[in-house]
């Protein structure tokens, strides 16, 4: 049900590398999980409101006051590649 193409597409979106020899395993596992999941399609829920929050909260705002953040040293401390006070990454091609 989840084809090799689906796995490739999804892996691409999620920036995961899936080797050719892994495709079969992933498509099999994802298919069996989705088989089980598809149970929810039995239900007619056209009249039901979706829930994205169990809490009935709204309008939680911060006051617009600035406070010092972290030092540059702390900001960069965990960086795997740091140069000239900034994070270094491979060249970005604009899309």
């Amino acid at each position: 049900m989840v084809s090799h193409e689906d796995v490739k597409y999804v892996a691409r979106l999620a920036r995961l590398r899936v080797e050719e020899d892994e495709l079969e395993r992933y498509s099999g596992q994802l298919s069996s999980i989705l088989n089980h999941i598809d149970k929810i399609s039995e239900l007619d829920l056209t009249e039901v409101e979706p829930t994205s929050h169990v809490l009935k909260l709204s309008n939680i705002f911060r006051e617009d006051v600035s406070r010092p953040g972290v030092s540059r040293e702390d900001a960069l401390a965990n960086g795997p590649s740091v140069e000239n006070d900034a994070f270094r990454v491979p060249a970005i091609l604009e899309g």
């Binding site: 600035s66 953040g69 972290v70 540059r72 900001a75 900034a86």
Partner: peptide
Amino acid sequence: STESKMFCGCRVEFGGEPNTRTCPVCL
């Protein structure tokens, strides 16, 4: 041109020394 960022208290300002106005949220 608010004083602080959208989702954290870091100051909003143009330019400045790189990575001097950050916190766990905006990082």
